[in-house]
Simulated assay, not measured.
Amino acid sequence: MLVLSRKINESIIIGDNIEVTIVEVAGRNVKIGIDAPKDVSVHRKEVYEAIKEENLQAVKKENLVSLVDFFKQQNK
C-alpha cells in the first residue's frame, strides 16, 4: 500500500485520468474529491462490497434457475 501525505487542496493523480483532492480535514474526518471519467465507477468500500455480494447472489440464483430448467427439459 502506498501512503501519501497531502494538505488541503493538494491532489494525487491515479493513472492518467483520476484526480483525488483533499477538500477538508476536520478532526478525524477527511473529505476528498474525486475527479474521474464517467465510465469509472467510484464507491465507498462498504458499498462496493455490498454490490459485489449482491451480484454474486444474483448469479448463484440465476444459475440455479437455469439448472432446474435444464433438468425439466431433460425429463420431457
Rank of each mutant, 00 (worst) to 15 (best):
F70C: 02
G15E: 04
E54V: 04
K72L: 15
K61L: 13
N17Y: 03
I14A: 02
I34Y: 02
I13R: 14
L67S: 14
V59G: 00
V23G: 04
E19P: 00
G27N: 05
A36R: 00
N9M: 12
D69K: 13
I12L: 14
G33C: 07
K72E: 15
V23C: 07
D69N: 15
I32T: 06
E24G: 02
E53I: 01
V42Y: 04
A58N: 10
R6Q: 07
V40E: 07
K45R: 12
V23H: 06
D35A: 15
V42F: 03
I14E: 06
P37H: 04
L64R: 14
E46V: 12
S11Y: 08
E62T: 10
F70H: 08
V65W: 03
S41V: 10
E46C: 05
V65D: 11
L67Y: 10
V40S: 05
D16T: 11
K52F: 13
V59L: 14
P37L: 04
I13E: 15
N75R: 14
I14Y: 01
E24C: 06
D39A: 07
V3Y: 09
V59R: 12
K60P: 02
K7G: 13
K45Q: 10
V20T: 03
Q73V: 09
D69H: 07
A50F: 03
E49A: 10
E49W: 04
I8A: 06
H43C: 03
V23K: 13
K38C: 00
K31C: 07
V23M: 12
G15I: 05
V47D: 15
D16Y: 02
D35H: 12
V40M: 06
I32L: 13
V68C: 00
A58R: 10
M1R: 11
G15M: 06
V3P: 03
E10H: 09
V23T: 09
K61Y: 10
K45P: 03
A36F: 01
R44G: 11
K31M: 09
L64D: 14
K76V: 07
E49C: 07
G27D: 06
V47N: 10
S11K: 10
